[in-house]
Write a protein that binds this DNA or RNA. Sequence first.
DNA 1: CGCCGTCAAGACCTCGCCGTCAAGACCTCG
DNA 2: CGAGGTCTTGACGGCGAGGTCTTGACGGCG
Lengths: 343, 343
Amino acid sequence: MRQMSPGGSSAVPRSVDVARLAGVSQKTVSRVLNDEPYVSADVRRRVLDAAEQLGYRLNNAARALASGRTRSIGVVALGTALHGPASLLMGIERVARDTGYALRVVSTVEGDPTGVAGAVGSLLDQGVDGIVISEPIDDGPVPVKIDVPVLVLGAPPSFSAPLVLSVSVRAHDMARAATDHLLDLGHATVHHVAGPQRWFAAKDRLDGWRSALAARDAAEPPVFEGDWTPDSGYAAGRQLARTRGATAVFAANDDMAIGLIRALTETGLRVPEDVSVVGFDDVPVAAYVTPPLTTVRQPFDAVAGEGLSLLVHAIEKPGQALPATAGQPVDLIVRASTAPPRA
Amino acid sequence: MRQMSPGGSSAVPRSVDVARLAGVSQKTVSRVLNDEPYVSADVRRRVLDAAEQLGYRLNNAARALASGRTRSIGVVALGTALHGPASLLMGIERVARDTGYALRVVSTVEGDPTGVAGAVGSLLDQGVDGIVISEPIDDGPVPVKIDVPVLVLGAPPSFSAPLVLSVSVRAHDMARAATDHLLDLGHATVHHVAGPQRWFAAKDRLDGWRSALAARDAAEPPVFEGDWTPDSGYAAGRQLARTRGATAVFAANDDMAIGLIRALTETGLRVPEDVSVVGFDDVPVAAYVTPPLTTVRQPFDAVAGEGLSLLVHAIEKPGQALPATAGQPVDLIVRASTAPPRA
DNA sequence: CGCCGTCAAGACCTCGCCGTCAAGACCTCG
DNA sequence: CGAGGTCTTGACGGCGAGGTCTTGACGGCG
């Protein structure tokens, strides 16, 4: 355990070493390092100098054990590099770092029987002060008793925790806006290439699309269920090309929209002249594909930021009322993949 | 600190509670839970039952304090949702989970003065058994003394640690293969849209391109330095379109290639008839843009897997020889964005 | 039948920090 | 000038696990 360099006597320094060097008690070192009050400027200086001189680092395990807090937040991520989930994760990381929390990441894997419950369990094992569940997949109720606040980004599965916060990404409204846009252009109805329905995010978009159609009494064509990949969008496109009279499609993400457009173009259909396409996410390349994609921008950073500040508030001031949140705007970005149907 | 439910006396159970219920000592509980030898089957059974009944979870902070190990690995990620970094991160997470390690993630931010050093420092503060630095940005030497094994994916900055492992992503060879492909098609030379040169990954690709040109005595045109975004690729494309005689371009990632192609097409140049373009990464949409992109596939999962198994080996069997690693193949994927120059 | 090695389990200490309480120094003010 | 605050600091006892040593029980064997 004791770590020695071959040269001689350099163990990893402990706070008591710092104390000795500074000529104070260990407790005072602790005070200085935790910014507790009641330390004279002089002592503080001496302690900091001594710590620096020894290259002292606080031992987090000991600190966590003694204080019961870890200053870390666990994230249940989706094990994918898809733009949405990855953006959310990075947004969360940034805010966590800014607020002084470390991040522990576990991802759920497609097909893992334990799913979200297993991921949450492993976070609880590690010890976290709060948990973020990012746009989860539905594997039914989560049978884990959680004893820290939980933030869910997107639609929540049901579980028991002292406090469940949730920031809506408003996928429903966004999907509806996308669909409305196509209907407004004069299309009789709008087809939908959905995401995998085990994802709440995919379900929300489907629902939004459905309610937009219902509000105008538009016929609801059959849904193609893809898996977020351009490949699945392509497959949907091949199928759609054989469907007579489809003039507008809303894809549940940009990748599928891009695959879809390729399939349509390959079969001789022009976008947007013959078929209009709307995507979802506004991935970076969306503006540069052919044709530039009309899509809905997801405010990942804003969602992560807002959610995390709620969570941190819940962790640090338990019981207090939560600050109001702004809510995210729906941001439809119209580019060149949509147009009125040909007369 | 003691946590009570309003109803009554349900504190979070400790190992000593399990011990009492099972009628053994706390140490025996520890033995069972750590799979130590010298426990009879009967006792093991009783302990496990008691633990389950109480819903007992090992306290990781206490365990880490007592054992000096955290069973966690720290990752220095790039704070971006770009396909490459995000894929690497997810690959790392998957392997870490499979090998029983938890993940702590810190990201470096563009423009953070402390850079990699700061990120590594915060991981050391948290306590990790090993560190992965994923495709770092060059902020000069890292002045932190690290006392755990380090794995660097991509080119390493210099720092001091007991053991520095490194898995090459062979970006140099890949870039060279991409450039060679264009030269093989008969192009007199190849232009390059580079990534930001603070990234080692971008530098490697530039070097690979450069060495391919040098090997054939091809003239080296000026380099456009982008920032990985399609926007910067687009800007490079506008500029390139004004350059007479450019017939082949190698872009340092697919996003820039896509922006580039759009700029070329908008100015009336056809891809690949007038200009051939090769990307890098093989992002999911690469096969579906117009034209489908010739690109180099990066084996992110394989790199993450190979690297992490090395790191885990170094953590668990310090001093022992490392297992040999396979090395990753260079995988050029030829699609429709490249063709011989017009005669 | 006694010696010794292996197995099984427990007592007791340790890990490095934080929380609580107590005590001394110093100030304020009647 | 002394009572009662406020500031500063330290002694001490955990936090909840793992490590080490010890103690018995048991069994093989000369």
